[in-house]
């Protein structure tokens, strides 16, 4: 028990240092670049809390990040890298839209939503699963193969959105909107926040349960920590190169379809940009703990929301969020920060 508490303390503090440094850098940037630094800072840090609209939208933006963060965490827990999140989210959104457009008025709405969720999960799983399969079969590096596949998929999805499935009634690069029956219920008007946040939270709980209370989850974690040991202990190691990728891709696909049904109501060109990458950061901040992914995703959405508010009310551009996020990315796995805290703590105890 004592060990766990120390571990928790060290993790929290090092995360605090990481975030602290990234905030310092953003303050520095705002001081350098903004004509009205105080106003900019106010909106960057507190903007998301100034009204219901911003606050709800921030929570809404965290929904896909919870799904992708969970997907990445599952893969990381098994020592597999799914770098194809971007393409999997995008493809999931497209296939969900495609089926919803076909179903349109027929059958009950719930059925349509189920078809959309399942088809997006399957497509995402297929895309990521391929990389897992190649890794198992020929030891092809799944990190690079999943990235390259995803890059190709993004372009192919673009083709569908701007080509066959393009909405002729608008100049926007998008598919037609899906039937209103399939739109998720808004629960925090006037913001975009919809009911799927509950679904996201439930999924996080489900993934937690899967990892720590089921045999598959256990074996997956063992493979992730030490494959040689797992093989020795009689675990089917090959299976756990493919399964986590399937699950990871599936969650990414669902992130896409949920974003379509909850927020966009159509498949907009480039709607998934950044959701996949940020999922990686979210998983890392949460130390791959499914429950911690919820606050981590909200935090990442907060950075985006803050930057957006600052852009609307002041004179900086939205991309400063990317810089803050990259600083967090840089430092979140830095073992030296960990070691430093441990070392200090020990000295104090002695």
């Amino acid at each position: 028990m004592k060990h766990r508490r120390t571990e928790f303390f060290v993790n929290t503090l090092s995360l605090g240092i990481t975030i602290g440094i990234s905030f310092l850098i953003v303050i520095l940037m705002i001081l350098l670049m903004s004509e009205t630094p105080l106003k900019t800072m106010y909106y960057f840090f507190l903007g998301p809390f100034t009204n219901k609209y911003y606050f709800g939208n921030m929570l809404n933006a965290s929904i896909p990040l919870i799904f992708t963060g969970l997907g990445i965490a599952l893969a990381f827990r098994s020592s597999m890298f799914n770098l194809g999140g971007e393409g999997q989210v995008y493809a999931g959104g497209l296939v969900a839209t495609f089926f919803l457009l076909i179903i349109n008025e027929s059958g009950p709405a719930v059925l349509g939503i189920l078809v959309a969720l399942i088809s997006s999960a399957l497509l995402g799983a297929l895309l990521a699963g391929m990389s897992g399969f190649f890794r198992m079969k020929w030891n092809t590096d799944e990190l690079i193969s999943s990235f390259l596949l995803s890059s190709a998929v993004v372009l192919i999805v673009n083709y569908f959105i701007t080509g066959i499935l393009n909405d002729p009634n608008t100049n926007l690069l998008t598919t037609p909107p899906v039937n209103e029956r399939f739109w998720f219920l808004k629960i925090f008007l006037p913001s975009n926040l919809d009911i799927s946040i509950l679904f996201a939270v439930l999924t996080a709980v489900g993934v937690y349960f899967f990892l720590f209370y089921t045999k598959w989850g256990y074996e997956m974690r063992m493979c992730g920590l030490n494959r040689e040991f797992s093989r020795y202990g009689g675990i089917n190691v090959s299976r756990y190169m493919v399964m986590p990728m399937l699950l990871s891709g599936g969650l990414h696909g669902i992130a896409g379809s949920v974003a379509v049904m909850g927020t966009y109501h159509q498949c907009l060109k480039g709607f998934s940009g950044g959701i996949g990458w940020n999922g990686i950061a979210v998983a890392l901040i949460a130390k791959n703990n499914p429950l911690a992914i919820i606050p981590a995703a909200v935090f990442f959405a907060y950075l985006d929301a803050g930057a957006k508010a600052a852009m609307l009310h002041s004179d900086v551009t939205f991309e400063i969020a990317a810089i803050v996020q990259s600083v967090i990315f840089f430092l979140v796995t830095a073992r030296a920060i960990h070691d430093f805290i441990r070392f200090r703590k020990k000295e104090v105890q002695v």
């Binding site: 991309e319 969020a321 810089i323």
Partner: peptide
Amino acid sequence: YLKANVFISGLATNLLASGLTVV
């Protein structure tokens, strides 16, 4: 020196580059 995962810090560099250039 800070012993960060080289793959993650590589991704961070890419993110930094696309953010910094636009900003």
